[in-house]
């Protein structure tokens, strides 16, 4: 998939993952890069940007292995933003799917 296109979806992924539970950076980055082919280092600038915009807060929590980790928690504003992005995403993908469906229909008619 086109790189440009992927990045917009990245924001949505981060917000949806954090809405499920608070995560530390590495965990979040792995959940995304397991599914989407992207340089992992790009996700941290995005996290910082979203935090500046007030979509989430961070806190430190001790870990059983090694130093404390920085956790991200979605704010109320972040939840509202996630809802908005999810709605937009569904509207967009169902539009694309409809077009794909129509194209498939025509293909099968012509063949």
């Amino acid at each position: 998939m086109n790189i440009q296109f992927k990045k917009g979806a990245l924001e949505l992924c981060v917000l949806v993952l954090l809405a499920r539970k608070d995560c530390y950076g590495y965990e979040l980055v792995q959940s995304i890069s397991r599914n989407i082919d992207i340089a992992e280092g790009t996700i941290y600038p995005l996290l910082r940007r979203l935090r500046t915009e007030g979509y989430f807060k961070t806190y430190l929590q001790e870990s059983s292995e090694g130093p404390p980790r920085k956790y991200y928690r979605l704010t109320k504003k972040g939840k509202a933003y996630r809802d908005q992005l999810v709605t937009e995403w569904h509207a967009f993908t169902s539009g694309v799917n409809r077009i794909l469906g129509e194209a498939d229909g025509q293909d099968s008619l012509s063949s």
Binding site: Y24, Y26, S33, K70
Partner: peptide, 26 residues
């Protein structure tokens, strides 16, 4: 500190430094 943490968690999960750095990107 974010990237330092990323390296330390990655190492504790058994990845190599080179692997972690390559996956992070330039």
């Amino acid at each position: 500190s974010d990237y330092r943490e990323h390296f330390s968690v990655g190492l504790s999960e058994g990845r190599t430094m080179t692997e972690i750095a390559a996956n992070l990107g330039d």
